[in-house]
Design a protein around this nucleic acid. Structure first.
Lengths: 124, 124
DNA sequence: TTTATATATAACCATATGGTTAAACATTCG
DNA sequence: CGAATGTTTAACCATATGGTTATATATAAA
């Protein structure tokens, strides 16, 4: 059994659910940067940026390290790994269900069309 | 360039950020079920459950199909694929950055320790 | 045709979220 | 020291979220 810590996943997915935060991760993926570097592309106060960073940090997606008076942000893999693990785990079921669905659809189409081996009447 | 539709990802990650909704997906992964089936494990009104289902549905994670007076819920792969694509895309950067970070850390440890080839003083 | 069943919607409420501005820190520069 | 810089925290605000109960809708059963 794979253990998926609920609260941790809550934080990760919630952190990823915001376009600003995803853009920040994208930026930081290009290299570590300071808080003001991160803020630069956004039309928003530094205070707001700092809060977004806190969200990413507590989700385990970002690490903040103070150096002098500037904070350097870098990627932290823990959160992403958690999210990926969850998705991969469920993808298995998804695919199983998809296969089942597919065969059900195929059967229902044949039944609806009234013929077992014919091609699609509409071509659609 | 991979296109990641922002609003769609917002919806998917937001849908996944709630433990009740993730549990619902888990349940449905075991097989299609009605709304009351889905509601059964939760200590919450059917109205609340219905709203959660709507969230999952608009995120492209679940499909609802009315049959008589009962609604049948099944997994919809679209949303999950979107989330996975995003994560996989960024994992690449994550790993690159991780490699970079690792070598930086290695170097900084050597520098801090004051010797170029020595072993860690603390062992930690 | 009434009544029961299965869901959905409406109206409402407390709390969380994402933003603001102003003030507080801590560090570097003159 | 005093002032500038980079960031964080505090107080506040509008809106979103996740829940409730009550009502509406549609189908099935009696």
């Amino acid at each position: 059994m794979v253990k998926h810590s609920s609260a941790a996943l809550d934080r990760v997915f919630h952190a990823l659910a915001d376009p600003t935060r995803r853009a920040m991760l994208q930026r930081i993926a290009g290299g570590d940067c300071s808080v003001s570097d991160l803020a630069q592309p956004f039309n928003m106060s530094l205070a707001a940026v700092s809060k977004h960073i806190t969200v990413l940090e507590s989700a385990g997606l970002l690490r903040r390290k103070k150096e002098g008076r500037t904070s350097w942000c870098s990627l932290e893999p823990k959160g992403l790994r958690a999210a990926e693990a969850w998705l991969r785990y469920y993808e298995k079921f998804w695919n199983t269900r998809l296969d089942a669905l597919e065969s059900i659809l195929k059967k229902s189409k044949m039944t609806k069309g009234g013929r077992r081996h014919g091609k699609s009447p509409t071509g659609k």
